[in-house]
Design a protein around this nucleic acid. Sequence first.
DNA 1: TGCATTAAGTCAACTCGCTTGACTTAATTA
DNA 2: TAATTAAGTCAAGCGAGTTGACTTAATGCA
Lengths: 404, 404
Amino acid sequence: MDDISPIRAKSGTNQEGTSAHNRRVMIEALRLNGALSRADLARATQLTKQAVSNIIEDLESDGLVVALDAVRKGRGQPSTPYRLVPEGAFAIGLHIDRHLTRAVAVDLMGSVLARAEANLPFDEPSKGVEIILELIAGVRRDLAGISAQSEKRLVGLGVAMPGPFGLKDSDDKWMMPAWQKFPLLETLAKGTGLNVGLQNDAAACATAERIVGAAHGVDHAVCLYVGYGIGAGLILNGELYSGGHGNAGEIGMALLAPAGPGSTPLEHRASLASLYQHLGLNPADSDIYEQMNALVLAEDTKMMAWIDGAAHDLRWSVHLIETIFDPQTVILTSGAPEALARRLVEAMHPLLPSIADRPGRMLPRLQLGTTDPWSIALGAAAAPISRAFDPLFSAILKTSPGAA
Amino acid sequence: MDDISPIRAKSGTNQEGTSAHNRRVMIEALRLNGALSRADLARATQLTKQAVSNIIEDLESDGLVVALDAVRKGRGQPSTPYRLVPEGAFAIGLHIDRHLTRAVAVDLMGSVLARAEANLPFDEPSKGVEIILELIAGVRRDLAGISAQSEKRLVGLGVAMPGPFGLKDSDDKWMMPAWQKFPLLETLAKGTGLNVGLQNDAAACATAERIVGAAHGVDHAVCLYVGYGIGAGLILNGELYSGGHGNAGEIGMALLAPAGPGSTPLEHRASLASLYQHLGLNPADSDIYEQMNALVLAEDTKMMAWIDGAAHDLRWSVHLIETIFDPQTVILTSGAPEALARRLVEAMHPLLPSIADRPGRMLPRLQLGTTDPWSIALGAAAAPISRAFDPLFSAILKTSPGAA
DNA sequence: TGCATTAAGTCAACTCGCTTGACTTAATTA
DNA sequence: TAATTAAGTCAAGCGAGTTGACTTAATGCA
């Protein structure tokens, strides 16, 4: 953000930027529409048939798209649809949580091809990094067994971990203080030789919903993630928004009232950490997931009470989010078992009135997203893919580091 | 957003898009840095000297920039700095409020060159539009007296009025129901022959702060506007964010608590409307501004009580905004007298803790912005200028309607 | 059966805007 | 006075989308 030079200016662009943008537009169009012919693409992108032909030829020789069988649909020469090749690119995603870390390998379409997990020492990042590097190496080996070209086509490593990042030194047990100070990204970049990017867990969840979930093709969506903490992933104008310092959406610390006894952080009321505390569960238990599921299915009184309490605050969070962002939809995702997340969404209804309560809505105001515990790692992996292949403003600029 | 064609895709770009982007980058660089030589611009934008030379030549012949005297600064040939020409473009801004409407003409630098105001019938838009068209015509005449080329260089008409827009039919007295239904933009477009754009008052305020105020050159800022209602103008990634349906930032309807007795819209506690009600003032009084000012200067008990109450809720609003957006700064602007706004900002301190409370901050967490009652009209006028001259993603696309 | 119609896709020449590298201009410094 | 440094220009080059004519291959109608 802060330039070394005192002159502030955006970067210019040239034909390379044009070409990069158009390639990305093609890829996005194929991702959103499944398969399209060159003529379809030309109409949709407003480029000429010839320009599209050249770009598709390039993409095909790069192994990113393939032709399908020609289809006859009425008069005229049959069209040849093209679709993305899943094996056209791969990425590694890493999800670091308090007690556990997960790594996945995904392809261009966001399918998970390999996965691995391991326990993580909460307070010893230097040991933890070794475990992580081993985990990543394992996933890479698995991936290499699936596609011989995987290493060449690996576009990066995405890391997701609980935020917020870069605050004052803090010993807040909600965060992971030892990890906050450790030079994680540099170490991982050295250890893997890959481009490394970081986002918080909620942002990763939103990225996952955008590539393969409920936010696919939606340009304005907010993804509420109820994990150990709670956060919101913001998709604004079709891009993830990270704020001035990368901490946008870190609503766990949001106070529920301006002052007085109700002035509690949201995280203390509506997060799995608060649930564990309420129920006296130990988050380090290996069967914690099953314990929660059983309690929900049994309609355990204390569980139901927590759900009602959390729903009360989440309902209002949705109201505030709608009021502030005017999104097309809000998606609730969670690291909790699906039955629990479903009960939570049900308990949040009826929603509070807001500007989202408008005529002619296409999407529901609130929907249940994924509850797959691997989805954050998936979202982390989707981030480098998105950086490399989605049409972004930054991708046209001369300083753009991304490749496509 | 919703295409007629079932195929969804972004538009491609070509050399025209490249050129348009680079022109805009030059203009923005000159706006942010005052005056720069071609060599400076080449370094800042990462374009070649030659490319910059050609673009500057074009801009000069278009009357958008002029050369200043050459400056010697060390070895080498002296550089010739260029600066923007204020008379390079003009725009009209219109601020429609409940009882009053204001029109201004501004130049490329955002200086107000002409202004006019009139009372407006609250319930009769068809009569109101005639008044408005007359007002605009008057401002245009004044502008033509200042610059002979003004008509040729008029890039558009920006309209700001209280939102939210496009909701269910409502007779909420806080809104302007008759105006919501009236085809205002079409009528104004026909009546003036100009491109017309609409934003809500808080967004206009943020646009004004960005072009000539505290948000100049800041890419992540939120502008709280305390007017008859209350709203937030969101500047994210250097662009105004409007949400999925143009109502982002309409926080007046945000409930202050999830349920129960405290569940009041923010607008009922922290807006000038609530102040008028609290003090028993009549907003239609012509000297309402002076009345408020006198009460603040006299430290009137009821006034101070309102300030304390509003500050209580606003302090918390700032906390939530910081938590959700992670902006570089929050700017409080108001249609109230400066003394009142200043007291309000003072009463909001100390601010609540949030992620904005970080080490190494450059900008204050909260600052007082403009209290000029004309600033919304100014912001409305700045919008078409921004659309036409700022580097925007949409400006590189083939469908881009803006001119530069 | 045969020909007009329609649409996908290609060919080759063109244009536009940035790039390249050498060159000119004009100042400072030794 | 000559070397050095930096701004800015010149002219050829190149890459990517555009243009318009052409080819290919279906359908539909007589």
